[in-house]
Design a protein around this nucleic acid. Structure first.
Lengths: 343, 343
DNA sequence: GTGAAAGCGCTAACAT
DNA sequence: ATGTTAGCGCTTTCAC
């Protein structure tokens, strides 16, 4: 069913039908109701491409998903982020276009997206300082919102980020409050902005308690499960091993959990610290080794916020950039009681 | 840069330029080379929507991702599947359209996709017996490939599936070979086709060894982490607890691992049984409790195969359905040695 | 081998 | 309040 057929049935011009369906004020209310009714009965939806061609807008938002050329990893954070964003898109009649590309060709993907005019805007994930993608998108004139943050001081574009620094500071403080003195940080690649901020929060918390930083307890790499396993195994063999772990990703944390189990230690019940793009979940059991592990809950919210922001920009182009900093919630469950055995 | 501008630069008609770029045989080779060169220099890509409108094809494939209304779960399997499929799409110049909808409105999503003609085909995930979506898509005339299988005997459509039954049968045999006699099955919802097949394989393996089925060691629910945790905790408290777990999903397995750790048991090194849409990874340490846990590796391959199959169908509509059954690989790592303590 | 013109399904000026 | 017409950027007859 297309517009022509529909307007024939209705014995009206395509124009009137189109206007009625798109809520133009000049059409007679009775006519509009009649049009809407018949359209519904005939299950009419305007052809996306025709509409897009006529309006110059695609009603689609692009997400470029880089696949690491080195690991077989797809960041599972994407799944939840996309779920959140996707919800917002559908609600607003937008489509979501996913471009899966090898991570050495992200730029090409954006260029293509712009040249083929297949999307009205894009979301940029995991920005690095002076990220070339941002410059490229500005040149291409493709509207975008950044999920994460870099160059915040001079950012002439919109971003949404969580307060990573505060999150990790508070998580660390929480562990210190429980009596831990040797807390390990298993962090992401420090070329990523968020990993830097997290380390900063960690160090700040330790410094405030006058605890000397032990660099043997700090590692930073691409966040694979294996990385978590290797790092934790190594640290647990120290003469004075860590009594708690702060881990930057859920996947990596699984590795840490395995390491703890393998070395015959125990893990236990959960306590959560929710941050936007990870949920830290604190595991302890009796007096054994707790770890903060990243999970997948509130990423979704970040997806929603990014999407709303972008649709807003795409809808009525803004001249000023907006920045949203999501604060974290520290949700502490029941098993916060006893202090660790070792100190 | 659009066709008109490009053809002006070249001092050719739009027709010739279009033909040159689309590989029509009648254009002069010299002309073609010149056109291609200038097009490249000017970074020309045909406008997706205009091309689609003219050809009647959208060069896009849709994936409908249902978000559970009950749990906050996004099946992480999607992430990997989509990575695999996405790769194939890009390679063939197709876009991937994601529709995130609440799981009580999948039908609506397909209807809309068809009515708006926004995609050339779709992939259907997790079919149930007599799945209404399949009938709907056939009515709508929207080409599709099913990932998973139901109604296989009378399936007049194409599907790609793994041999779930065999996988679980072999995984069970593997555990039995190690000396286990009480193996627990933590399975997915049995309204899902694959969960049925998995249970079947499990039961077959036990029956072959004349081991009496203990229904207290078999549970089946939506595959959340919490479900794994609760089930395992409960079973580990039995007078004669299971000595091994066979778990149907990676997420659920995380819960099982936690439960094992919480009850003071040990887990250990990995051994893998690879099945297409999960990777079973067998954990054991010394003589302690092994679990088979689903991970995320070869789902990607399934995504690729589904995508290739669909593009094939979309490219030159077939009249006969194809069925692909992926066999599993049993990859057993190093720590297969000792038998368990308890029997 | 190349070009002119029609048309894909829709929206948006421009009438009336 | 409704209709006529042009045009979005491309492909595809049909002529030459």
């Amino acid at each position: 069913m297309n517009l022509k057929e529909l307007s024939n049935i209705l014995d009206l011009s395509q124009t009137t039908v189109s206007r009625a369906l798109n809520g133009y004020p000049e059409v007679n209310e009775a006519t509009r109701r009649r049009v809407e009714k018949v359209a519904r009965e005939n299950n009419y939806s305007p052809n996306t491409r025709a509409k897009g061609l006529a309006t110059g807008r695609s009603m689609a938002i692009g997400h470029v998903i880089p696949i690491s050329t080195q690991h077989e990893i797809v960041n599972p954070v994407f799944a939840d982020f996309i779920a959140g964003a996707g919800e917002v898109y559908s609600r607003n009649g937008y489509d979501m276009l996913l471009s899966v590309v090898s991570d050495d060709d992200e730029a090409g993907a954006y260029r293509t997206l712009a040249a083929k005019a297949s999307v009205d805007g894009v979301i940029v994930h995991g920005p690095r300082p002076n990220d070339p993608r941002i410059k490229l998108l500005q040149e291409l004139g493709l509207p975008f919102v950044v999920h994460g943050r870099a160059d915040e001081n001079k950012a002439d574009y919109s971003w949404v980020d969580v307060n990573n620094r505060r999150s990790f500071q508070r998580a660390t403080e929480f562990l210190l409050d429980l009596g831990h003195r040797r807390v390990a940080l298993i962090n992401g690649l420090e070329s990523m902005d968020f990993a830097n901020r997290r380390r900063d929060g960690f160090e700040t918390a330790l410094a405030a308690r006058k605890i000397v930083l032990d660099t043997d307890l700090m590692v930073s790499e691409e966040m694979t499960e294996d990385f978590g396993y290797r790092s934790a195994i190594k640290m647990l063999k120290y003469d004075v091993p860590p009594t708690a772990f702060l881990v930057s990703s859920m996947i990596t944390a699984i590795g840490v959990r395995r390491a703890i189990a393998d070395t015959g230690k125990q893990m236990g019940r959960d306590v959560s610290v929710v941050i936007h793009d990870d949920e830290l979940s604190y595991l302890r059991n009796g007096a054994d080794i707790p770890i903060f592990t990243a999970a997948r809950s509130s990423v979704r919210q970040a997806g929603q916020i990014c999407a709303e922001m972008l649709l807003n920009i795409v809808g009525q182009p803004q001249d000023s950039a907006q920045h949203i900093l999501l604060e974290t919630e520290l949700t502490v469950g029941e098993s916060t009681g006893p202090a660790p055995t070792s100190t």
